[in-house]
């Protein structure tokens, strides 16, 4: 199993103020890893450290099997794509002119522009001025710019924050496809649905420390209180246990043709987050 990112016991302080506290986690090649945490928990800081834009006081960060500092080498830089929460585009220029600049910087053929715009669903928009685009479209242009050079590893800081549901869904499907094609993705979010939908594994970040990590499904199962809600056709709801007594209850409801629905009460990631940190996500 090859780790593409290895973080061990990292501390980060900003002028004496602790932002990250004994942070440890690894990301395997090919996975989508989500950092979930409320505002100020240290998500952006972690991303800055992982992309060598910020230093740290203690611990060790390895990316591609070498010290994170190596990312400053242009050759290594070409292997990653970074989309921060305040990445800007040149508003007075067209979509195409924005992407052309990055084609030159990354030594990528201009033909890639049409390809990448198609990937993000913006074919035919190349001659539009960026200032004339909607927020969701701008975000997709930024994503197009980030994946222009086909990076193996993507860093995305809240890629869908403040976007409408349709744009969010679009970005999610783009990310899923990139991941299927083999791109490793590190993303931060404070949206538990996003984490659940596209992440293979998530880490809960609270006050700069990881409280819990694992695949969303496993986290939900391990924090489930094993109760089942059954809804009867007359509108009554019953809470039953995940045991023989509960089974009996459900069986009876089915036999009497009273049953409307059954669903297990797995907690959401938001519930689990609140449980382990005592804090709400947003």
């Amino acid at each position: 199993m090859s780790n593409i990112i290895d973080v061990s016991n990292v501390d980060k302080e900003f002028s004496g103020e602790r932002a990250l506290d004994d942070l440890s986690f690894s990301i395997q090649s090919g996975e989508t890893f989500g950092f979930l945490g409320p505002s100020g928990s240290g998500k952006t800081t972690t991303l800055m450290l992982l992309t060598a834009q910020e230093g740290y006081q203690a611990g060790d960060i390895q990316v591609f099997g070498a010290s994170v500092e190596k990312l400053k080498d242009p050759k290594q830089m070409k292997r990653v794509g970074v989309l921060t929460d305040n990445t800007g585009l040149y508003e007075r220029l067209t979509v195409e002119a924005n992407l052309r600049l990055y084609c030159k910087l990354y030594d990528v053929n201009y033909q890639r522009i049409a390809e990448v715009l198609n990937e993000v669903g913006l074919s035919g928009e190349e001659s539009k001025l960026v200032s004339k685009l909607s927020k969701g479209m701008k975000q997709r242009v930024k994503l197009a710019r980030t994946i222009l050079h086909k990076p193996e590893l993507l860093f995305l800081d809240e890629p869908t924050s403040a976007l409408d549901p349709v744009s969010t869904e679009r970005i999610h499907s783009i990310l899923r496809r990139l991941n299927e094609e083999g791109t490793t993705i590190f993303l931060t979010t404070h949206d538990m649905y996003e984490a659940e939908r596209i992440c293979d594994r998530v880490a809960f970040l609270n006050k700069g420390h990881i409280q819990l990590q694992g695949p969303p499904r496993d986290l939900r199962v391990s924090h489930s209180n094993s109760s089942i809600t059954i809804l009867l056709k007359d509108g009554r709801e019953h809470l039953v246990g995940n045991d023989s007594e509960g089974a009996e209850h459900i069986k009876k409801a089915i036999a009497n043709q009273e049953l409307a629905s059954v669903h297990s009460n797995e907690p959401t990631l938001g519930d689990i987050f609140a449980l382990v940190t005592g804090k709400e996500l947003v």
Binding site: T51, P74, M77, V82, T84, G88, Y90, Y102, Y106, R145
Partner: peptide, 13 residues
């Protein structure tokens, strides 16, 4: 306009 970050994260020095 936060365009500098993108430049600095590219091979451009």
């Amino acid at each position: 306009k936060n365009t500098l970050r993108g430049l600095l994260m590219s091979p451009l020095n």
